[in-house]
Design a protein around this nucleic acid. Sequence first.
DNA 1: GTCTATATTAGGATAGAC
DNA 2: GTCTATCCTAATATAGAC
Lengths: 221, 221
Amino acid sequence: MTKSKTPPKSLSPEKDGDTEQKILDAAHAVFLRQGTAGARMQEIADEAGVNKALLHYYFRSKDRLAEAVFRKVAVQLLPPVAMVLASGMTLEEKVARVVEIELGELSRSPFLPGYLISELNHNPERAHQLVTVVLGERPENLRPKVFEVLRGQIEDAVRAGRMVAIEPEQFVINLISLCIFPFAARPMIKVIAGVDEAGFAVIIARRREELVPFFLRALRP
Amino acid sequence: MTKSKTPPKSLSPEKDGDTEQKILDAAHAVFLRQGTAGARMQEIADEAGVNKALLHYYFRSKDRLAEAVFRKVAVQLLPPVAMVLASGMTLEEKVARVVEIELGELSRSPFLPGYLISELNHNPERAHQLVTVVLGERPENLRPKVFEVLRGQIEDAVRAGRMVAIEPEQFVINLISLCIFPFAARPMIKVIAGVDEAGFAVIIARRREELVPFFLRALRP
DNA sequence: GTCTATATTAGGATAGAC
DNA sequence: GTCTATCCTAATATAGAC
């Protein structure tokens, strides 16, 4: 399905493992650092260790390459969270899992949130791409699922007097805001808190311990 | 101070009010929509209703123009919050004021958070610009102030048994994350929650009521 | 100060040899 | 499949008239 759109593989002298993959990885690195508009095909070629013309051979245009990278990134970030939220775990477990997944993933990919945010802000059409990646080809069927599951769990907890009432949308927005924003705003936070890269890591480590209790306290009645 | 860097004002036929300002406003609009790398000088000229050459006359290069816009944006967004946090208000009042300022400001400038985030992620040098804007020319002197004021207030509240212990940095990060992220991620949220622009406005209106109580609950012991 | 016209480079894309 | 060489448009920037 992703292979079928690339040029026909001939039986010619293939140099090494997979060039297409090397290009995609290089594009991933460069697009995330520079942003899509700021990235240069030449730089991607250099990073991949191949000729510029090859990028076009495999991906036809910068735009298609950007689309491929975006899809890859979206798949990496969102579905894990969506699956947790729609699962049968308790709300407390879900919060803990989401925090764990996000802070872990993003510690390894510092540019990811900033990239995703700029890309979505400047290319409205990417949004539709997103939804199919996260929710499959028929979003209408699956989207309500996540929120309805949450709504049910919240209502039960409220009735049991264990939780204050909250819209499932706000629940999710609050949770992912607290997880993702610090990474998106990392350069700003470093400068405002007056810390370097190591200091930022300390702040995140601290967050790993305290974010879940913080969030759960906010849900108590 | 901002005027002194622009070309010398001659006494020639000045058409209308202030061309420099018109250009800056146009650049503001275009850079925020398109991102700095994606923006085109021609588009800015069109939006300002002047010739492309004039942009260079007033701002010498695209890069300098971008810098001017960035500074303007940073000034608009951060100092109000910094002042509230460093003020003599109670913690509860501060939380309420910050939420009010941010949600109000950002409802009017939807592209602002995304712009700021991409800009900072792709241009590390912008970070230093930020700090001088927010904290003045001698950041070492003022930066601790904000956090020390907060630390004192938090410690008092903790001793009084009114609040759980929390680092002032985490306090601030949590607060601005909850305020800003939903706007930065607006296209994503719209698509995931399955709402249009009006639906998004409803979500924000809801937040305006519930975010402060949510945050304060999280601080209770 | 503002315009028209033009220089100049950068960067995406293709042709064609191997 | 991969390279070299080249094309061509778009985009920043400047010169010079008014």
